[in-house]
Simulated assay, not measured.
Amino acid sequence: MTDSANSDTDQADSLDADLDAINGRELPSAQIPLSRERIVQTAISYISDHGLASLSMRRLATTLGVEAMSLYRYVVSRDDLLDAIVEDLVEEMDSYPDVITAPDHGWQDFLQRLAHGVRKVALAHPAAFPLIASRPAEAPWLRPPLRSLRWVEFFLNGLEQEGFSNQAAAAAYRAFTSFLLGHLLLEVASHGADLGPLDVIDDDHNDSLDAYPTVERLSPLLREDHSAAEFEESLENLLDRIALIKSEN
């Protein structure tokens, strides 16, 4: 266990709501106003600082300076908290002025803006972004990273307004979400996000490349970060593919 985790444990152990109540002391939650929004925002910050795996209701309560039981008035469980985090991340796109909810200058511009909005969320919260891929969706067929019926409605309505058939709009939705999820999960992994089996190797690893001379020779090039350019190029290719889907349906 890390020093930080030990510190969290020590702090949590010092918050004994039952003992405080017996001794007539005011509980911390009575002194510090709580809300679901404040709890969710603090959880996102905690994940950014300590990683998703270390998030618990007890540690979150310690960070907020309250007893853990006070959180359950606002989030009924850790799963409820994680779902609320996903909802908050997706809704963050509303704060980006470049992201629009309906086409103003054609469907290509609309999807470009939407894709970059999702990427901004991923880059702003790389450690929390994998939750978008792993949490249960509002509907079983809803695909990440557009984990919101509201945004999927915007997406499909926007394409239908631009002349897409039902089949073409649905096919575009599948292609668009697959592209975004695959690219952005790999990108946040390069920023240190924990993807479990997809997690990236630390750049400071000591494995010898002597047996792989070509890899060793090209390793400086392989380490270069071209994420922005690759995202843009892949997005352009995707839009060309969607244009073909539109013409065929």
Rank of each mutant, 00 (worst) to 15 (best):
D16N: 15
G24F: 08
S29P: 03
A30K: 11
Q31P: 00
R36T: 05
E37Q: 15
I39M: 11
A43T: 07
I44S: 05
S45K: 07
R58P: 00
R58T: 13
R58L: 11
R59V: 01
R59T: 04
S70T: 03
V76P: 08
E87M: 02
E92I: 00
Y96L: 12
Y96N: 02
T101M: 07
P103E: 07
P103H: 03
H105Q: 15
L114I: 02
L114A: 05
A115S: 11
A124Q: 12
P126V: 01
L131Y: 10
L131V: 09
A133D: 09
P136E: 13
A139S: 13
P140C: 04
W141I: 02
L146T: 04
F154E: 13
L156P: 01
L159M: 05
E160I: 01
E160T: 02
F164R: 02
A172M: 11
F176S: 07
L181C: 07
V188N: 06
V188H: 09
S190Q: 08
L195D: 11
P197T: 08
L198R: 13
N206A: 15
N206G: 13
D207V: 06
S208A: 15
R217L: 15
S219W: 15
S219E: 09
L221C: 02
L222D: 03
E224V: 08
D225N: 13
L235D: 04
L239K: 02
